[in-house]
Nucleic acid binder design. Structure first.
Lengths: 218, 218
DNA sequence: GTCTATAGCATGATAGAC
DNA sequence: GTCTATCATGCTATAGAC
């Protein structure tokens, strides 16, 4: 509403994304989307052909926006860090903070996080691509790091360790509303996420028995 | 189908729960539920009055089944453990293993986990009760433990630490299908969850800088 | 307590004027 | 490219026979 009138197509993707993220594909009608976007229902079919194609378009937009492969990136930027315990701890610290920052900085629309989570819960064809091209390289990078620090670790251990980070991102993407009921309105701000990143980084570094960077001590 | 014919009402709750958990409230029609349960649509209205009341009934069933308040219980069973570092580590170890066991033992239907998660994502009145009566006491118990080990810790730190456990439970409840695509069919069995519980317990104990129980070393 | 039949409505999609 | 008007379908829910 308050935003300047972009072209109808973009506006429809935004409006639809917001609604789909909140109520799921079947929970939203084309009429609701059209009303929110301030256009008529037929505009949806003119621009996208069907409700389903509009959904796919919104999901694709969100997936493209989400980089997410942070371990791989941090290691690529400075591979030498893999060689020493201090370097490995540094990789973890940087990755965790960057992941929380990327996911929860305030200019990322909430719906992009939520619609991705819905895709995870009910995988579709769009999503297999996401898993293969975005997530898998990151898992591989994390595996290399873990094995460098702890040779002979098994796959379950590595997966569980990496999931400490990913599951926390998932939780705050999905359960924000419920957690604010529990912990107070507005309690989940930038400050909160920075505090959480600290704890998660500490836990992951210490689980691997690496030396704690000074700024993460107690 | 394969199960012995219980009474129609129970059968409807099971069938509906399974479908609602997978596709959400709006994603499921009364026709689908009736067909799955092998009865006619009107039976739903006879027994429950409406689709919504059937949904509430399924959700309530799942919430009642889910104990979840494990920290509170473990501490109540042996409050003396709170007094020493070794005891505190023991509380964490026991709670984490018990939580994973309770949530993922094989006689718990998948749909009960999933429908609760959907309740978290889109909180309703049924769910406020769940948060207040089930989750809150557990959070309080965890806070007492954390402060005993690290006096002066702030609320964010405590929340983030407790969420290491809760978020991992959420992840495996929600993303099982997607993760099996990534890690291989059937990879998420009892063995897997035990391995994960080990890593999570290690991470939570070490983040609090408590001594590691011998069976959790390396 | 379970069935058939159907009312009453909202949905996704299309046709055609402008 | 956007509108109005309309279609066919599928939905929840109810009425009434058995």
């Amino acid at each position: 509403m308050a935003e300047a009138k972009k072209n109808t197509k973009e506006h429809l993707i935004d409006s639809a994304g917001e609604l789909f993220a909140q109520d799921g594909f079947e929970g939203v009608s084309t009429r609701m989307i059209a009303e929110k976007a301030g256009v008529k229902v037929s505009a949806i079919h003119y621009h996208f052909g069907s409700k389903e194609k509009l959904y796919t378009e919104s999901l694709t937009r969100a997936v493209e926006y989400d980089s997410c492969a942070d371990f791989a990136m941090v290691i690529a930027e400075n591979p030498a860090l893999l060689e020493t315990p201090v370097g490995r701890a540094e990789i973890i610290r940087t990755t965790v903070f960057r992941t929380f920052y990327d996911n929860f900085r305030e200019d990322t629309p909430d719906w992009m996080r939520q619609i991705i989570v819905q895709g995870i819960m009910k995988p579709s064809s769009v999503f297999s691509d996401f898993l293969e091209t975005v997530l898998k390289p990151d898992v591989d990078a994390a595996r290399r790091l873990y094995l460098a620090a702890r040779p002979g670790a098994d796959e379950v251990q590595i997966a569980a360790w990496l999931d400490i980070l990913h599951s926390q991102i998932l939780l705050y993407s999905v359960a924000k509303e419920a957690l604010e009921v529990l912990r107070g309105e507005g309690s989940m701000d930038t400050e909160f996420y920075r505090g959480v990143a600290r704890v998660v980084a500490r836990a992951m570094i210490l689980e691997l028995e690496l030396p704690l960077p000074v700024d993460l001590e107690q």
